[in-house]
């Protein structure tokens, strides 16, 4: 039940772009500590020379013809945008 020694919750929350409250940070550090201690058991497995597996599909590369396909119309693509104007998505200024 110890917080994981190597989990820097502030650093990781910033990487994840997630504004956590202090209460969430305390709780997650504890709970994720338990989980990280649990997964330590993977160190017992001998994995020398074993290939990592990205997925279980017997598909390795998929080529598509280089031909333009119709996409979503602009109206449909923008219908869920939180803020829009003139067929564009509105965001705060990024460059002064």
């Amino acid at each position: 039940m110890n917080p994981a020694p190597d989990l820097d919750i502030n650093y990781v929350a910033n990487l994840a772009r997630l504004a956590l409250t202090d209460a969430e940070k305390g709780k997650f550090a504890q709970q994720l500590g338990d989980i990280l201690h649990y997964v330590e058991k993977l160190k017992q497995v001998e994995v020398t020379g074993v290939e990592p597996m990205a997925h279980a599909a017997p598909v390795y590369n998929v080529w598509a013809a280089d031909v333009a396909q119709p996409g979503l119309p602009v109206g449909a693509a923008l219908q869920n945008a939180p803020a829009q104007r003139d067929n564009l998505i509105v965001v705060p200024k990024v460059v002064e």
Binding site: D6, A13, Q31, L32, L42, V50, E51, P52, M53
Partner: peptide, 29 residues
């Protein structure tokens, strides 16, 4: 949120090999 934090941690620099890559190898086994 909890899973995003855990997933970000295990993919982050310095921990990727120990957690994510090792898990992918055990998955093969």
């Amino acid at each position: 949120k909890r899973r995003i934090i855990l997933g970000t941690h295990v993919l982050s620099s310095g921990y990727y090999d120990a957690y994510y890559l090792r898990a992918q190898k055990v998955r093969t086994l």
